[in-house]
Computed example of a mutant assay.
Amino acid sequence: MQNLKIQEEVNSLMGLGQHYDEQLKLASLELGDFSDDDLALLDKCVQYYSLLHIHDFNLNYLRDFYYAKKRECIENRQTAVQQRVELQRILSSIDEVTRDVVMLERFKGAAEERLIPDIVVVQRNSQQLATKQALLDRQKTLTIPKDFNIESVIDKVDSLEQR
């Protein structure tokens, strides 16, 4: 009984093989026309068909698979292009920031060159305060006569300047 089932299955597979050979001949193809790589792919395909118990070969499935792979390839290219554009944008912003950093470093260097140390500032302030105090002290000791008229002195200076 078991042998009978196996014999029937072998006969049906042989008939299916002959059917496919006839289909290939109708398309003017012979198995010898395929390269070794193509034959290896066909062998792999046959193995998958036998493992999955698929006996009807439908070209629509192959076309669907091809178009799915083609779509995936196009999407991958599109993603790569988008990533290249994004990378270019990031690189240009990095260049811009680098230029800004260089400019700020030059500014910082110039500012540090012009910077006056704290000790010098304190010394100048103390000198100015001492000079101010000395002038105030001289002003206090200066006695101005009561009959002094500043306007007459200004008029005399103006007349001297005009000559």
Rank of each mutant, 00 (worst) to 15 (best):
Q2W: 12
Q2E: 10
N3M: 13
N3T: 11
L4F: 07
K5C: 09
L13Y: 01
G15Q: 13
G15T: 05
L16F: 03
G17E: 13
H19D: 14
Y20I: 08
L24D: 00
L24A: 02
L26S: 08
L26T: 05
A27T: 03
A27K: 01
E30Q: 01
E30C: 02
L31K: 00
F34K: 02
D36V: 12
D43M: 10
C45G: 12
C45R: 04
C45P: 06
S50Y: 13
L52H: 10
H55C: 02
F57G: 01
Y61Q: 01
Y61W: 09
Y61C: 06
D64H: 12
K69T: 08
K69C: 11
E72H: 01
C73Y: 15
E75I: 01
N76H: 11
N76A: 04
R77M: 03
Q78S: 11
T79C: 11
E86M: 05
L87Q: 14
L87S: 14
L91V: 07
I94Y: 02
V97F: 08
T98S: 02
R99C: 03
R99I: 04
M103G: 11
R106H: 08
K108C: 08
A110W: 04
A110K: 15
E112Q: 09
R114A: 08
R114H: 11
R114Y: 08
P117H: 12
V120E: 02
V121Y: 06
V121L: 02
V122G: 01
N125Q: 12
S126I: 05
Q127K: 09
A130R: 01
K132M: 12
L135A: 14
L135D: 03
L136S: 13
L136A: 13
D137G: 04
Q139R: 06
Q139Y: 04
P145S: 03
F148C: 01
F148K: 00
S152P: 03
V153S: 03
I154C: 06
I154N: 05
D158T: 13
S159M: 10
S159C: 15
Q162E: 15
Q162Y: 14
R163G: 00
